[in-house]
Amino acid sequence: MRRLAFLAGLAGLVALWAFAARESLPAILPGPLAVAKALGTILSERTFWTETLLPSLGRAAAGLALAFPVGAPLGLLGWRWPAVSAFFAPLRLILMGMPAPILAILCILWFDGGTVTVILTVAALLLPVFQLATAEGMSAIDRQLAEMACVFRVPAARRLHRIVLPAVWTALGPALRIALANALRVTLLTELLSGAEGLGSAVQSAQSWLQTDRLFALVLIILALIGLAEAGLTSLLRERKRS
Score class of each variant (00 low, 15 high):
203 V>T: 02
204 Q>V: 06
204 Q>T: 13
206 A>R: 00
206 A>M: 01
207 Q>G: 12
207 Q>S: 14
207 Q>I: 04
207 Q>V: 07
208 S>I: 03
208 S>M: 06
209 W>Y: 10
209 W>N: 12
209 W>Q: 15
209 W>D: 15
209 W>P: 08
210 L>D: 15
210 L>M: 11
211 Q>F: 03
211 Q>S: 07
211 Q>M: 08
212 T>N: 02
213 D>E: 06
213 D>S: 07
214 R>V: 06
214 R>G: 02
214 R>M: 07
215 L>T: 03
215 L>F: 05
215 L>Q: 01
215 L>W: 00
216 F>W: 15
216 F>N: 01
216 F>V: 09
217 A>W: 01
217 A>Y: 03
217 A>S: 06
217 A>P: 02
217 A>N: 02
218 L>V: 07
218 L>E: 03
219 V>K: 03
219 V>W: 04
219 V>C: 14
219 V>P: 06
220 L>C: 14
220 L>E: 04
220 L>A: 14
220 L>W: 08
220 L>D: 11
221 I>L: 12
221 I>G: 09
221 I>Y: 05
222 I>H: 10
222 I>G: 14
222 I>C: 15
223 L>D: 12
223 L>I: 09
223 L>V: 13
223 L>P: 08
224 A>S: 07
224 A>Q: 11
224 A>D: 14
225 L>Q: 03
225 L>A: 10
226 I>S: 04
226 I>H: 03
227 G>F: 09
227 G>S: 08
228 L>S: 11
228 L>D: 09
228 L>H: 08
229 A>Y: 02
229 A>P: 09
229 A>R: 01
229 A>S: 11
230 E>V: 07
230 E>I: 03
230 E>C: 14
231 A>N: 10
231 A>H: 05
231 A>F: 06
231 A>C: 12
231 A>Y: 07
232 G>N: 08
232 G>A: 11
233 L>R: 13
233 L>H: 10
234 T>P: 06
235 S>H: 11
235 S>E: 13
235 S>R: 13
235 S>G: 14
236 L>G: 15
236 L>P: 05
236 L>I: 13
236 L>S: 14
